[in-house]
């Protein structure tokens, strides 16, 4: 488990940031993206996959969360 931060990029997409590993990359897909259920598996542009417990869609980004590494870089 690692502390991560998800923020909106200037272009409007989601950006994943893992401070401990200096990983900052665009999120290419998010498993659940509805107002009630948001999160699940995050696929990153660099090929990595992380998992966050689904939560109701946050009212404001950025948000700090705990994430599990599923696959890929570090």
């Amino acid at each position: 488990m690692a502390n991560i931060m998800i923020r909106k990029s200037a272009a409007g997409g989601l950006v994943f940031y893992l401070p401990k590993r200096d990983i900052e990359d665009a999120i290419s897909s998010i498993e659940f993206d509805t107002p009630e259920k948001w999160g699940g598996e995050l696929k990153l542009a660099n090929g990595g996959t992380y998992y966050i417990d689904p939560i109701p869609e946050p009212a404001r980004l950025p948000i700090s969360l705990r994430a599990k590494r599923v696959d890929g870089v570090e």
């Binding site: 931060m5 923020r7 940031y17 401070p19 404001r60 950025p62 948000i63 700090s64």
Partner: peptide, 12 residues
């Protein structure tokens, strides 16, 4: 950058 990211999250 650490404090900037914190202020972005906490204070928008």
């Amino acid at each position: 950058n650490y404090i900037s990211r914190y202020m972005e999250e906490k204070f928008g």
